[in-house]
């Protein structure tokens, strides 16, 4: 009797401690990054850092706007290519594929999540960059937003596909049966009933994919070119925007931290704070969409 009680108590303490430690770790990381960045905000100035695009630590110029635009552009490109692919995959797995096919496709998609980032980067460097270089546009080096967006689209695919699949599966079965009973085809049922019903979960999946894309580092360094420039079209054709080189916020930190000292190092920590804030906003909005939608659908019932 008392033995069981001890186990019960002990397990409770262990679980509580695990939860507290996870929170403490996040707080500690946030605190130290912010503390290291304080000098940069004070000496360089917040608007100077966030709204100037010239980054030349050698001449005390620390504008990270070009990197913010770089991160946002490459994430946008990845979403553009990755989301349709991931959603198609999720719908196929949840609604169409028979059990046998599912048991092959699902692990294969999830395997993508387990491939190390540097391997994606290597693939991009050896296969994608030389292919893109063949596009005959002046100034096209192959390195840049297009190569990195493609790599990133594949990397966020498993994240979005698995969460979106769960969201689609969570749509009650009687919605589908009702729709089919009214004479709708399978495709009409999916687009008109299932997807709208699972909308909040799907949007959350996309937002989490965005968060994943913003944080990616190694593969980006290998294929994006790392030039500190505002991405812009190489010719009059606006599509050549994606052939422009760029640098991401994560890449800025990883490429330069080895040699950085003093204010330069502080400015890199400030880059980390901006990244931290961006990802927090994105994850919080995903959470908000999920809970908000649950509440409104509960009210509707």
């Amino acid at each position: 009797m008392s033995g069981r009680m001890i186990v019960d108590k002990a397990v409770k303490v262990v679980l509580f401690a695990s939860a507290i430690i996870s929170i403490l770790i996040v707080l500690a990381i946030g605190f130290f990054i912010f503390r290291e960045s304080l000098d940069a905000w004070a000496k360089i100035g917040i608007s100077e850092m966030l709204f100037k695009s010239v980054w030349r630590p050698g001449q005390d110029q620390y504008g990270i706007l070009a990197m913010i635009v770089g991160s946002v552009s490459v994430t946008f490109g990845a979403i553009l290519m990755g989301v349709p692919l991931a959603l198609g995959c999720a719908i196929f797995l949840a609604e169409i594929a028979p059990a046998g096919v599912q048991s092959i496709v699902r692990p294969a998609v999830q395997l993508l999540a387990g491939i190390p980032s540097v391997v994606y980067g290597l693939f991009g460097l050896v296969i994608l960059v030389p292919m893109i270089r063949k596009l005959n546009v002046p100034g096209n080096s192959g390195f840049g937003l297009l190569a990195s967006s493609i790599v990133l689209a594949v990397m966020i695919l498993p994240t979005i596909a698995s969460i979106a699949e769960d969201a689609i599966r969570a749509v009650p079965e009687n919605y589908r049966q009702g729709s089919l009973a009214l004479g709708a085809t399978k495709w009409q049922t999916i687009t008109k009933v299932v997807l709208p019903a699972g909308k909040s979960g799907i949007i959350a999946a996309i937002i989490l994919g965005i968060g994943r894309a913003l944080g990616e580092t190694m593969a980006m360094i290998m294929v994006i070119g790392n030039s500190v420039i505002m991405p812009k079209p190489l010719t009059a054709n606006p599509l050549t925007f994606f052939l422009s080189q760029a640098r991401t916020l994560t890449g800025n930190i990883a490429v330069e931290i080895n040699y950085a000292t003093g204010l330069h190092a502080n400015a890199l920590f400030a880059t980390g704070v901006v990244l931290f804030a961006l990802i927090m906003i994105i994850n919080a909005s995903a959470r908000w969409i999920i809970t908000h939608d649950q509440r409104s659908s509960e009210k509707a019932r």
């Binding site: 030349r56 790392n226 030039s227 420039i229 080189q245 990883a254 490429v255």
Partner: peptide, 10 residues
């Protein structure tokens, strides 16, 4: 200064 368009490798 070195042009900002240069590809940078670490």
């Amino acid at each position: 200064v070195i042009a900002a368009t240069a590809i940078l490798q670490p």
